[in-house]
Design a protein around this nucleic acid. Structure first.
Lengths: 143, 143
DNA sequence: TAACTAATTTGTAATGATTATAATTTTATA
DNA sequence: TATAAAATTATAATCATTACAAATTAGTTA
């Protein structure tokens, strides 16, 4: 029951169902904060001490290849992961490091198709200072 | 004369002028194929054997911080670099690995400003199969 | 159900990009 | 020219990711 949703996701793409893959999917569904592979690994290891880092990487790769999850490059350091829902963009705060979903779609897709390249993924990200960090700065100046 | 353009770029931002920084800028101006730090390093080392990898990284960082160059995250593996001209997006071919400039601007900037985060950088990238790789595939099927 | 094959998981080691550090050199300034 | 600050260099360390081989698990067939 608990994993039915994720079982179906895998079945639809005829990917073999394993407990590890289901756990990773459930994790990404619950944690929408764009975790790194390492974060997923350490958190899931708590309930499954024999979990291997390699498994996490392998699973993320196969899930990404089948468009069940999204691998996003923003930081330049590591990849972040996202369970796929509607298309959206990301905002990374240079101050606190948070990555925030931005609920807009890209209106450029049509244009880019005309160039002749086949578009399979659309990624957009912004960098700057997030609302919260901006407000903290104002507070400091006022005090 | 040769480096005047780059000297001015640095002067305008009051960044200290060094031969290494000028060479890196000239390299990025000439090579618009989004090279990695390592590519820049090995190519420039040919004419300057004492060049250090750390210098390349340090220079790229300071140039990026002052918005003279752009650091782009697409591959998840490494950062790529771009001398800044007009705003554009990127396309990465999953087959041949090339990163191609896409000459469109992002019409989302206005929208995102309304959310309250301060946008300092706008990045967009697409992934898929490039025109050339697509054509090669067709050729194969026809033969 | 048992036996067999293929796929997955695991643990460890290797790789590759980037960063830290300290000594040396260069540049800017008095 | 002497001095201080900044940049460069070389090396070592770190961190994310990948390669590899052995052990385990899942799927299939008799």
């Amino acid at each position: 029951m608990m994993f039915e949703k994720y079982v179906n996701l895998l079945k639809n793409k005829s990917i073999q169902i394993t407990p590890q893959r289901l756990e990773i999917l459930r994790y990404l569904d619950k944690h929408r904060n764009h975790p790194t592979a390492y974060q997923i690994y350490t958190d899931l290891k708590k309930n499954n001490p024999s979990l291997s880092k390699t498994t996490v990487y392998n699973s993320l790769e196969i899930l990404n290849k089948h468009n069940i999850i999204n691998s996003i490059s923003i930081t330049g350091l590591e990849s972040r992961y996202d369970i796929i829902n509607e298309m959206h963009h990301h905002f990374m705060c240079k101050k606190c490091g948070r990555i925030i979903d931005i609920e807009i779609t890209c209106p450029n897709i049509k244009k880019t198709l005309e160039i002749g390249h086949k578009i399979e993924e659309v990624h957009g990200y912004f960098k700057g200072k997030c609302k919260e960090c901006l407000e903290k700065e104002i507070d400091k100046h006022e005090s």
